[in-house]
Simulated assay, not measured.
Amino acid sequence: MSIKFKEIISSKEEFEEFRSFIGQPSQRAANKVISFIDQHCRNFISMSPFLTLATSNSEGKCDVSPRGDFPGFVSVLDEHHLFIPERPGNRRMDSAENIITNPNIGLIFFIPGLGETLRINGKAYISRDPELLEMNIVNGQAPLFGILVEVEECFAHCAKAFIRSKLWNPESWLAKENLPSVPQMLVAHSKIPNVTAEQVAKELQEGYKRRLY
């Protein structure tokens, strides 16, 4: 750490002292974690079109990736297993490669307009099970693989972050002309000679139209 920050908590002893300052969770917060997918979780997942997926490699380097499709695109196979189909992306395979060396995974399921979310933690596996892939055919296209999750923890998360951020409130959204230019960002970061932001924007739109599945 090149910058000298103050009051850094870096040991278990310091954290325990900090915990006494913050206080203990309420009984409801402490008891809300269950170890299986009950009907409430199943119902939540069936309405969710979007999730974030957190993985890390064997060195502990972390990655968070979005997954989205029609509501209920994640299959609940039984009380302890989920299947997330892998749709066409950028082929970096960051999450999949991490899972091979470190199966621990964390998911957060979102429902548009609802502040509360569903968090699920467990172990993940890369699956090419033909039956699971066939279950997830869209527009005649089956995914090449999917992520099978063995569920260890399920719990609801409160809406405070959404209330503070006003994420679901359209009145808080920036006008389109004020949003960051992702094509310009990609040009600056990738440093590929003779490629313009206009070209990147066109390629992105083509991919969105033709290569979702």
Rank of each mutant, 00 (worst) to 15 (best):
E131K: 15
L51Q: 02
V33A: 03
F145T: 10
G146K: 04
I126E: 03
T196L: 04
I34V: 15
G146Y: 07
G113Y: 06
L144M: 11
D94H: 13
I84D: 03
V33C: 00
N178T: 08
G140T: 03
E134S: 05
P25T: 02
G68Y: 09
E79L: 04
L118A: 00
W168D: 06
G89T: 11
T101H: 11
E153Q: 13
S127M: 10
I45A: 00
V74H: 00
F110H: 12
A124N: 12
R42M: 02
E14K: 14
V149K: 01
S56K: 07
K202E: 10
K176Y: 06
S75T: 11
S190V: 01
E177V: 15
E206L: 11
I100V: 14
R87T: 06
G23I: 04
F162G: 10
E152A: 07
I100Q: 06
E206N: 15
N57F: 06
A201S: 15
I147L: 13
N139T: 12
E97S: 08
L148D: 08
I100Y: 08
M93Q: 13
H40G: 11
Q184Y: 06
Y213F: 11
Q184M: 09
K166E: 08
P49F: 00
N104W: 05
R210A: 14
E7Y: 15
E152I: 05
A159F: 04
I163P: 07
K4G: 11
L51P: 03
L77H: 05
F21C: 14
N102K: 09
